[in-house]
Amino acid sequence: MSEAAVRLGRPGWSIRRALGVVVLLAALAAVPGFANNYYLEVLSEAWFYVLLCLGLNIVVGFAGLLDLGYAAFFAVGAYTAGIVTLRLGLSFWLSLPISVVAASIAGVIIGGPTLRLRSDYLAIVTLGFGEMVRISVRNLAVTGGASGLVGIERPTLFGYHLDSIGAYYYVFLLLAVLGVVASHRLENSRIGRAWKYVRSDEDAARAMGINHAMVKLAAYILGAIFAAIGGCFYAAKMTAISPETFTFNQSLLILLGVVLGGRGKIPGVILGALVIVIFPELFRDVGSMRMLVFAISLLLIMLFRPAGIWPEKWR
């Protein structure tokens, strides 16, 4: 940041930086004007994973709680949208507040009993939670059992039917931008600093008067809400959801995005999410070897950038 840069209201924001963001957003918003459906499809998926990775980043990056069952929250959102629209016959938009409530409850369910657990033990419990959610939706009648929910109506917004990939490109881009803004605000808030304190030294944080239980629960709940809102729109876009989408691999992929990009660092997490979505697509022409090439490129990144592509500077 140059000395001459004119300071805006908030510290750290120069006019040049703000301009850069505006230009970048304008460029991204212009993409549907010239890109074909395939690129829109891949980029929508990328924005979607940006949102998921940012959500998980609150738990793993900011609060330092290893979570191997994050896909469960994504499932809560997607199934809430499916049940609200298909079973209850309500508007899709109602599923957003309902899924936020459902995700908060799920966040407390996983956060509450694990407050005193750390590292490996916490990872095992979250892994179990993820599997429990998946197996529950596979066996409940209301979630359509193993076949899942099919024929979810696509929503209408101000008379405009969200029915094309172009529309979902903007939906997921908007969600990703909101996710970035929310993450940024959270990171620099009182609770954001509390998360990082707990991450660095939980005992010291408690000694300084931080309510570690509330702080950790808040991380789980906020992370869950990100995934649940994303899940609602995922259900609307795909119109069909099944338990196979919410496997352990899904949780792992989201975690990979966070770790690969650099935990705790918002731009790093965005990059990580883009890598996990765009790399396998770039290698599509390699054919049957594409997942191998993907895995090797991930290994190389981790070898040369062990803290992630764009790691957080620890202060």
């Binding site: 460029a27 993409v31 074909n36 690129y39 883009l274």
Partner: peptide, 8 residues
């Protein structure tokens, strides 16, 4: 951003 656009 360019990478994303270059894809298009």
């Amino acid at each position: 951003g360019l990478l994303a656009l270059g894809l298009a």
